Amino acid sequence: MDWNDFRLILAISRTGSLKGAAKELGNDHSTIFRWLNGLEARFRVQLFERNGGVYVPTDAGDRMLLAAERMEAEALALDRDIAGRDARLSGNLRITCSESLAYRILNDLLAGFRSRHEGITVELLVDNRQLDLLRREADIAIRATRPVEGDLFGRQIAETAWALYASPRYLADRDRFIGGSFEGHRFIGWDTSAVAAAAKWLTETVPNDRIVYRSSSLINQMMAVKAGIGMALLPCYLGDPETDIESIAVPEAALTRELWLITHRDLRNTARVRAFFDVVGQALTARRQLLEGRSRNRAAL
Rank of each mutant, 00 (worst) to 15 (best):
S167Q: 10
S217W: 04
R146P: 06
W162R: 06
G154S: 11
S167R: 04
A196V: 06
S217F: 05
E204L: 14
T160D: 05
M223I: 09
R214W: 09
Q156M: 15
V225N: 04
G179E: 02
L202E: 05
I178M: 14
F182K: 01
W201H: 09
C236F: 05
I219Q: 06
E149K: 12
Q156D: 00
I157S: 02
L218H: 06
D191Y: 00
P147S: 10
S181G: 08
I211E: 01
Y213N: 06
V212E: 11
R155S: 15
S193R: 14
L234F: 03
T145N: 08
G184T: 12
G230I: 07
D175A: 11
L238N: 01
I229A: 11
T205D: 03
S215N: 13
R146D: 08
E242S: 14
F153W: 13
I188Y: 04
G184C: 07
M222R: 03
S181F: 00
R169S: 13
L171T: 12
Q221G: 07
A166M: 04
N208Y: 14
L238A: 08
T243V: 13
I188P: 05
R155N: 13
L171N: 03
R214D: 03
D240N: 12
L218E: 08
D175F: 10
W201F: 13
R155D: 13
E183I: 11
A161R: 01
G189A: 09
E204S: 13
G154P: 01
S193D: 15
D209W: 14
L202M: 14
G184F: 09
L164M: 11
I157E: 06
R174M: 11
P147M: 11
A196E: 10
G154Y: 05
L238G: 07
D151R: 15
L234W: 01
M231W: 01
G154K: 08
A166I: 04
H185Y: 06
Y237E: 03
A194S: 14
E242P: 08
V206I: 15
Q156R: 15
G150C: 10
Y213S: 07
H185T: 10
G230R: 01
I178N: 07
D175V: 12
T243S: 14
P235T: 08
S217Y: 09
L234Y: 02
R210S: 10
T192R: 10
M222K: 00
T145K: 07
N208M: 15
A199Y: 10
F182M: 13
A227I: 07
T192H: 07
A232V: 10
A199H: 07
E159A: 12
A198R: 02
G189V: 00
L218W: 05
G179P: 00
A163C: 10
L233T: 03
G239P: 04
A158I: 06
S216F: 02
A172P: 08
E242I: 15
K226P: 03
A232K: 06
N220I: 10
D209A: 09
T145Y: 08
L234N: 08
A196T: 13
L233P: 01
W190A: 04
F177N: 12
E159K: 11
E242T: 07
L202G: 07
A197Q: 09
G228I: 08
G228Q: 10
Y170S: 02
A197P: 03
Q221P: 03
W190I: 00
A232S: 15
R176N: 07
D209V: 15
E183D: 15
R146Y: 13
P147E: 02
V212L: 14
P207M: 11
A199D: 07
V148R: 12
A232D: 09
L164D: 02
G230L: 07
P241S: 00
I211L: 00
